[in-house]
């Protein structure tokens, strides 16, 4: 592929380029960040990219809003279905964000932190404490026997 064709390609498909950039950065943030709130932000960016993808694919060049007007023939309308779908997707996205944030709040209450590595460390400490008590109990039982 020559440079010109590549440039040409990017110029006509820039919306997909934007979608891919947003999608990948969102996914990266959601996976790599340790902060629970940032993870949710990443997830939001990821979802936003999908919304962009749907909406841009419904767009028809020169199309207008799909409102029927009496007496105006030969009007090109933009496909309304993706927009409608995305309304639903936005609602779903908002709901999962809200729920995610609620969980973060509860996590903060329970652990005192929203950093994943600190939470993992706390959990591990719990495990070790538990194992230690178990071992001690077993030793006590052994001594008793």
């Amino acid at each position: 592929m020559t440079i010109e064709r590549l440039v040409d390609h990017l110029a006509t498909h820039w919306n997909y380029l934007a979608v891919i950039v947003l999608m990948m950065s969102g996914l990266y943030i959601a996976i790599s960040r340790g902060n629970l709130v940032k993870k949710i932000m990443g997830m939001n960016v990821f979802q936003a990219s999908v919304i962009l993808m749907y909406v841009s694919m419904g767009k028809i060049h020169g199309g207008t809003a799909p409102i029927l007007v009496e007496g105006v023939p030969d009007v090109v309308y933009t496909n309304p279905v993706p927009h409608v779908l995305m309304l639903t997707a936005i609602v779903v996205g908002v709901a999962s964000t809200a729920l995610g944030l609620a969980l973060v709040v509860r996590t903060k209450e329970a652990y005192g932190t929203v950093e994943e590595d600190e939470i993992v460390a706390l959990d591990r400490a719990d495990d070790e404490r538990e194992m230690a008590t178990e071992r001690a109990e077993r030793r006590a039982a052994g001594a008793g026997a």
Binding site: K39, M43, V50, M53, Y54, S96, G100, L103, T107, A110
Partner: peptide
């Protein structure tokens, strides 16, 4: 309290999975 983190991780994984499905559906559409 680990249930909270379990739910949270599931939420992230689940949402990503569902969004993947949504992307696939979009392309099919």
């Amino acid at each position: 309290r680990r249930a909270l983190m379990a739910a949270y991780s599931y939420l992230i994984m689940g949402t990503i999975g569902a969004t993947f499905l949504l992307i696939g559906i979009g392309l099919m559409y």
